[in-house]
Design a protein around this nucleic acid. Sequence first.
DNA 1: GGCCAGGTGAAAC
DNA 2: GTTTCACATGGC
Length: 268
Amino acid sequence: MIIKNRNLNLKQIAESGQTFRWYPHSEGYVIVANHEVIYARQLEDGIEIDSEDPYWLDYFDLERDYQDIINHYKGKDVFLDEAMAYGWGVRILKQDPFEIIVSFIISANNNIKRITSAMEKISHYGTYLKTIEGKDYYDFPSPEDLIQVTVDDYRLCGLGYRDKYLHQLIQDITSGNIDPYAIKDLSDKELKETLLRLKGVGEKVANCIVLFGYDRSDGFPIDTWIKKVLDKKYGVTKNETDFIKNYFDYYPGIIQQYLFFYGRFIKI
DNA sequence: GGCCAGGTGAAAC
DNA sequence: GTTTCACATGGC
């Protein structure tokens, strides 16, 4: 189906550091989500995907008007204007909470290429879905699929010292200690507190998880790039969260994506 | 070849 | 409460 939208750019989303299961293919991307493998390609004023499932409309967060958000912040400062102009097609995908938790536990003190590679290897523990031009695609494994996977197995997936965090996460979920799907109805505060109890989840990772996995736009992950942006462009080196809450109020999580995407691009 | 990457846990103050 | 340090590993 064709999805028309002027704030929807596949390449920008793919490179905005929120998903690690998009595979560049032909002119577009192979995307695995919703127990389904699709191919998406860019159009002039939107995208085309080879699925008719309305799930994807929600996945691409289509009911949210990103131009309205951009207009709201326009003229606030020069750097933000540049960032929004550069990242006009960035959106925040609605991704599976469990997959997001795993992704961002792996993301700590890591780089995007390695995170992508680790997620690809872990996906082989999931159900085989489809082969496209010789490459096999797998559904992302459920916690149950990972019960028997050992710390050493995770190490072989390239997780480094984070191997034991993922192993612990699976124990926590399968033992009923935490249910990544049941906690979606918690308040912003309770949700974050719950996530912070997980090993390998600190302030920054928790913010990524609530923003990318639970549709909480108050999430504002402060990573190395955002730190540089705040320091060099806003003169903020301490009490960052207070500054963010005041200055970027309205849709802070989406603004954070524009700043991250642009700041990383210009190697600020 | 040292530094960096979408930082966190644990020990030490 | 905050400061300090170790931590796997591929890319540059």
